[in-house]
Design a protein around this nucleic acid. Structure first.
Lengths: 333, 333
DNA sequence: ATTAATTGTGGGATCGTTCCCATACAGTCA
DNA sequence: TGACTGTATGGGAACGATCCCACAATTAAT
C-alpha cells in the first residue's frame, strides 16, 4: 500500500498540515522542517494521492475520450490514431489526464462510466447516435464532438469542410481533363462521406462540357470494400473507359488502386485515382495517392484547447469549428 | 456539480446508508423504499462517485498504459495502435479503466503521474531505459513490459520470438532460391531488430552453397529511412544484382519497395522483398508484402490478462512471454 | 511598552462513499 | 413469556488529502 501524508508526518514528527504545506508550497514553513519533510518524502517515494486530492478539491483533472465504432476496435485506425495522439499531447500539456475507451455499441455505458469517474470534460469521437448526445447533455458537463455527424446546433463540433474538399477534388480532376469519372462513395449515413460526395457532384455539374459521372456506394468505407466494389463493377468500369476514379476517403481509394494494379491498369496513365483524408499511407503507397488533406492532428489539438476553455467556463465564440482541407497532388493523378 | 448520495437520501427521505444499500444491492432493503430510491436516482441521473468509492475501498480499478517514444506521438503507429486497441478491449472487459499517456523523454514523470493516480497496475510499452524500470520497481505495484528491451530477468516481458522469426525468414528466402541478399536492419539498440537480424544471419550462415549477404543499418526503423537507405546504396544495390531484400520490419520494407517501384524494378520478378511484423498495410500494398506475422493484438490482450492476475496476486508461471511468429507469404516474393 | 504584523505550526472539518454497529420491530419457537 | 432470528433502517468512523482557523513566538512599528 502506498504511503499517506499521515505516515510522512509521523516519521518527520510534524503534523500532516505541515507536510501538506511543504508539498504544496503554500503557506509558511521553516527551511529546517521543509528539508526534513522532503528527505522523508524522497526516501519513501511518497506521492500524494490524486484520488484524495480530487475528493476535496472537487477537481479530477481528468478528461474522457470515447471513440465510437461499429465493429473493429479503432485506435489503430489511421485517422483516429492521429486524433488520439494529438489529444494526448495537448491534454498532458494542459495538466489533464485522459481516460480512453472505445464503445462498440454506441451505448450509454461508457458515458455512465465517465460520469462515475467524474471527468471534467468529454470528447466524443466518430459517429454516434443523437440519443447518446441527449444523454450526455443531461449531465451538464462540457463535451464536444470530433468527426461525428449531427444536425444539432447545440453541439460543439469539430469537422473538416468536407463539402469544400469534395468541390476542390472535382475542380482538380476536371482541370486535369477528366470527363468520365467513377466515384466510390462511403456509406450514405456518414455525414462526411455524404458532404464530400455532394461537393464533388455539385461542382462537377457546374462544369462546362459533358461530364459523365458514375457514383457507387460502398457499404463500408474500408480498403476491402473499396477493392470489392470496383471488382464487382469491373466489366462496367473497363467497358465505359473511365479516366479517373475518386473515392470519398483514402482507404477506399487505396483498395481500388490495389485492384487496378493487380489488373495491370497503369496509374495514372490510364486511370487517375484520388482519395480524401491524406492518411499516412497515402504518401507511402506506390504510386502515392493524390488526395485532399484533412489535418486531424490540428483538429485533435484544437478540440482539447476548446474543451479546456469550456471547463474553465471561458467565453466561446462559435459552436461549429470547421477545418479547410487542402489539395495534395501526388503520383496517382 | 454532480449529485451525491446525501442529496438522494434527503430527497427520498431516508439515510444515506439506505441509499448505499439500494445501489450496491447489499444488505436488507424494503421493496417500497428501494423503488423510491431508484426513481430519484434515475430522475437526477445520479452516478456514484468512483473517486469517493476508490477512497474508501482503496481500489481505483484503473490501470496505466505508458507508451515510450523517441520523437513522434505514437498511438497512430500501426503496431502500438493495435496493442492499445487490444489492451482497451481486454481491460474494459475486466472492469479496468485505462489512463493512457505517451512519454517522449523516457522520463520518470509519467510514472509519478500514474502513481499519484493510484493505478493498480502499469503496462510499459516500447523501449525504455533501465533506470525507468528501476524507478517503477520502487513503487511496488504490478507492472509489465510490452515490446521493450531489457535483460532484467525480474521484469515480466511480452515479446515476439524475433530470433525465430528472423530464422524463418532466412529459411523461406533460401528455399525460394535466393543467394544474394540485401538486408536492411533497424537501429542496433533495438532488441527486436537485433534479434531478427541475428536469427536471419545465423540461419543463412548455416545454409549450404555460397550465400552472399549485405547488411545495412538504418538509423530509424521508419518508412522514410528504409526508402532513403536503399536510395543511398542504389548503385551498389543494382551493381551487385541482389535478388532479395529483407528488412527487419515492414515499414522499412515498404519504404524500400516504394523506391524499387519508382525505379521500375519488377517485384518479385527481379527483386523479392520481405518484411517483419505484418502490419495492416503490408497486405494492402501493391504488391502485398511477404512478412513474418507478429500477433500484437494477442500480445496486448495477454498482457492485460497477466496484469489482472498480478493485481489479484494470483500465481504466475513465467516471467517471459514469447510469441511465435508465423510466415505470411504474399505477392512480393 | 504596547500593539500589530510576520512567521510557523497543529487541530479538525470537509469531500462522497462504504461498512460496521446499534437499534427497532415483527414473527417464531420452546 | 422470554429468547431468538430475520428484516429494515440510521448513525458515524474511515479513506487521504486540503485548507480554514486558532494559537504561539518572534520581529517591527508606534
Amino acid at each position: 500500500m502506498a504511503y499517506n501524508i499521515k505516515e510522512i508526518a509521523l516519521r518527520v514528527g510534524v503534523s500532516k498540515s505541515t507536510v501538506s504545506r511543504v508539498i504544496s508550497g503554500k503557506g509558511y514553513t521553516s527551511p529546517e522542517v521543509r528539508e526534513r519533510v522532503l528527505s522523508v518524502v524522497e526516501e519513501l517515494k511518497y506521492k500524494p494521492s490524486a484520488v484524495a486530492r480530487a475528493m476535496v478539491s472537487q477537481r479530477t483533472n481528468n478528461i474522457g475520450v470515447i471513440i465510437y465504432r461499429d465493429q473493429q476496435p479503432i485506435v489503430s485506425h489511421p485517422i483516429y490514431g492521429k486524433i488520439v495522439d494529438s489529444i494526448l499531447v495537448a491534454a498532458q500539456a494542459r495538466g489533464y489526464s485522459v481516460y480512453l475507451t472505445t464503445d462498440q455499441g454506441m451505448s450509454l455505458s461508457s458515458t455512465d462510466f465517465m460520469m462515475e469517474k467524474r471527468v471534467e470534460g468529454l470528447i466524443l469521437i466518430s459517429r454516434l447516435r443523437q440519443n447518446v448526445i441527449e444523454y450526455v447533455k443531461k449531465f451538464n458537463i462540457p463535451y464536444l464532438m470530433v468527426n461525428g455527424s449531427t444536425e444539432d446546433p447545440e453541439v460543439m463540433h469539430f469537422v473538416s469542410r468536407d463539402e469544400e474538399g469534395g468541390s476542390h477534388a472535382a475542380d482538380y480532376l476536371y482541370r486535369q481533363g477528366h470527363r468520365k469519372l467513377f466515384v466510390i462513395a462511403g456509406p450514405q449515413e456518414h455525414r462526411s462521406h455524404n458532404l464530400r460526395l455532394k461537393g464533388f457532384q455539385e461542382n462537377m455539374d457546374r462544369m462546362d462540357g459533358d461530364v459523365e459521372m458514375s457514383v457507387w456506394y460502398s457499404p463500408e468505407s474500408s480498403f476491402e470494400q473499396g477493392y470489392r466494389l470496383l471488382e464487382e463493377q469491373w466489366d462496367f468500369f473497363v467497358g465505359q473507359g473511365f479516366t479517373a476514379l475518386f473515392a470519398t476517403n483514402d482507404m477506399m481509394a487505396l483498395g481500388a488502386m490495389k485492384l487496378l494494379q493487380q489488373r495491370s491498369v497503369p496509374i495514372p496513365g490510364q486511370v487517375a485515382v484520388m482519395g480524401f483524408d491524406d492518411i499516412e499511407y497515402a504518401a507511402m503507397y506506390s504510386p502515392s495517392l493524390t488526395t485532399i488533406k484533412v489535418d486531424n492532428s490540428k483538429i485533435g489539438h484544437d478540440a482539447v484547447v476548446m474543451l479546456d476553455r469550456l471547463i474553465k467556463q471561458e467565453k466561446i465564440s462559435s459552436k461549429l469549428n470547421e477545418y479547410s482541407s487542402e489539395l495534395v497532388i501526388r503520383e496517382s493523378t
